[in-house]
């Protein structure tokens, strides 16, 4: 495998910038192709995938619990006045649930994973790269791309849908808490209302969407870390870029996916 990536030739002007941008996109494309080539070839490194899943899940669980809960609670609280004006406060459970399932849970959760896991992967792989640990791994006849990159991308893609389902559940609980204290709705009554407007397709498309976001965070963070150069400065940059680019890509994908799903559903 080649370790001599990441040469930056300085060229002035917009043209140079564009050229570097497309060169970077091309390398990212090749990185993704390599992932799909290697993911199906044994050895599958299953133990390491499980380790990484555990890392992704455990590292983010407290934060996701908190943000999921608060999102549900606050969103309900803030929506109440405008709905009450039309005498439609009884719509709150279904409105909030639709918002959480279709948009809030996937988006908020994946942004948190991008921040927490993405920076972690960027920094970890980056420091392994610049301190020659990746070369060292290659010298022990272990394919570092498979052991470090494929496992992390898989872990992110598998765990994010689970985290989104969990965060959605916690969010709905948060919403219930607010509705219960204000309208004294029973849990069962709330849940009946909440899921009256949600179809299986809504949940299914959210799960698929979050797998895509997980894949995005995994790919971009690994790409940044694995191609880090320039010593410790490069490690910091890799961690930072991993988060910034992942978040940006998630918003772009969200926009595209919403258009796509809506054109099918309605």
């Amino acid at each position: 495998m080649n370790t001599e990536t990441g040469q930056t030739t300085q060229r002035a002007g917009i043209l140079g910038g564009l050229r570097d941008f497309f060169a970077g996109m091309y390398r990212l494309y090749k990185f993704i192709v390599q992932f799909f080539k290697q993911v199906f070839i044994p050895p599958y490194e299953i133990r390491e995938v499980i380790n990484q899943c555990y890392e992704v899940g455990c590292k983010t669980l407290p934060l996701i619990t908190l943000t999921g809960f608060i999102t549900g609670l606050v969103f309900t609280k803030q929506s109440r006045p405008s709905l009450s004006e039309f005498g439609a406060a009884s719509w709150l459970p279904s409105l909030v649930t639709i918002a959480i399932v279709r948009a809030l849970a996937p988006l908020v959760t994946s942004l948190i994973v991008a921040g927490k896991v993405g920076s972690n992967i960027g920094a970890e792989l980056g420091s392994m790269k610049v301190s020659e640990q990746i070369d060292a791994m290659e010298m022990t006849a272990t394919n570092p791309f498979k052991f470090l990159v494929v496992t992390r991308i898989l872990a992110c893609s598998l765990m994010l849908p689970l985290l989104v389902l969990y965060s959605g559940g916690v969010g709905i609980l948060g919403s219930y808490l607010n509705v219960h204290t204000n309208e004294l709705t029973s849990f069962r009554g709330f849940m009946n209302d909440a899921f009256s407007k949600i179809s299986f397709l809504d949940i299914f498309s959210s799960v698929i969407k979050s797998a895509v976001y997980g894949f995005t965070v995994g790919v971009i963070s690994c790409f940044q870390g694995y191609n880090a150069t320039n010593g410790t400065v490069g490690v910091g940059k890799a961690a930072n870029q991993a988060v910034v680019i992942s978040m940006f890509a998630i918003f772009l994908e969200e926009t595209v996916i919403v258009q796509f799903v809506n054109s099918f559903l309605r």
């Binding site: 970890e124 301190s131 020659e132 640990q133 070369d135 060292a136 010298m139 006849a141």
Partner: peptide, 20 residues
């Protein structure tokens, strides 16, 4: 190449111990 590498020991400039 993988087989060959098992017959070569490489002591890196930065030692490159896996720090995790």
């Amino acid at each position: 190449l993988q087989k060959l590498r098992l017959r070569i020991g490489f002591s890196f400039q930065s030692s490159a111990l896996y720090d995790s």
